[in-house]
Design a binder for these strands. Sequence first.
DNA 1: TTTTATTAATTGATCATTCAATAAAAAACA
DNA 2: TGTTTTTTATTGAATGATCAATTAATAAAA
Lengths: 202, 202
Amino acid sequence: MPKVGMEPIRRQQLIDATRACIGESGFAATTVQSIAKRAGVSAGIIAHYFGNKLGLLEATMRELLQQLKLDLIGRLPANPTAEQRIDAIIETNFSKTQTDPLSAKTWLAFWSSAMHEPTFARLQRINEKRLHSNLRYSFKQLNHPAPNQAAGTLAALIDGLWLRGALSPDGIQADRCIALCRHQTELLISVAKQHSNNTETA
Amino acid sequence: MPKVGMEPIRRQQLIDATRACIGESGFAATTVQSIAKRAGVSAGIIAHYFGNKLGLLEATMRELLQQLKLDLIGRLPANPTAEQRIDAIIETNFSKTQTDPLSAKTWLAFWSSAMHEPTFARLQRINEKRLHSNLRYSFKQLNHPAPNQAAGTLAALIDGLWLRGALSPDGIQADRCIALCRHQTELLISVAKQHSNNTETA
DNA sequence: TTTTATTAATTGATCATTCAATAAAAAACA
DNA sequence: TGTTTTTTATTGAATGATCAATTAATAAAA
């Protein structure tokens, strides 16, 4: 049956199947057999395209991160204001593609594996730092007196809502999470404005 | 060698060993062999006291939850004010016993397993609800206009700081987390007070 | 003599990886 | 153009390791 040029097709099929398996059954129950079966190919092909199981898992996590990155870029207007940037970050993190139960479970599975798998830990840390520095930059623009702290608060709030949603039987309530994050942002900005007024009049 | 009355001793040894194994090597690498070895007993004894591996894991998670519960009770003064109650909750969640890297990793491992293991999911949900309802009750006492939302925010912030710390190479920075949560609580209370004034003068 | 405590070895299942075999397609060659 | 060789794509079976659970055996204590 072999046709030429299957590599990109098979790679994508296998990555998709991996996401589906992890989301559906978790990391522990995701075997190369179950992935191959879902992708409709033989298990041996995984070694051919990804070297081994870890290689496939790494490629899968990379794609999740890439998707998140592109999603944010797509939501950012040209020359965004600080408020717009924060808003785009919030919306991206609670977008449909990120909060459907399958993706949410896949993310959390990778997060917990990152504790003991250096490959995942590295990727996870890059993502975490990007979120934090994007937020910090925005709060700096808003003259927040403690941009680092404000960014840490909002980043943790996003991750926390995310985690609680992933573990909840109802899944992530995106609208409610976005509303909560927006409200929190307003709170943090109002603190920044009060500070601005105080230093101006001082 | 058998002595009588070993049951409580062995149970505790095995639970401790399980926590240590999961915290050190993660869920995937924690086998009954590795637990038994660390506890200095034979693997067969696990079946004798806990039925099977899942039974031991469940007992381990129960102990983590119990410890958290007792920790909070110990920190609550008699007839606490709402502020005191919130403060005790924050301090408990970032206490030494909860934030040392081993415990943090063990918690996160159970959280992610809860996605696909109903036994863990049930226990995790009970804990989550207790945190939320404790906070909601306190914000209600403070006349916060949206106690449910305020509780959701602080609970998510706690979990988020917790998650980010568990995945960070530096571990959980308890002091910083507590300071952040306190600051957030003040923010939320100040909103409550403004609301009180508005409704009084209206 | 029965109960409690414990081990070490066995069993059977599962899993990732490797490997030999197969064949279509492409390239090299005649 | 026709033929041979090489490359690419794929499978299914084997290999060997690992693991949870079971079991038979042992012995102290009641």
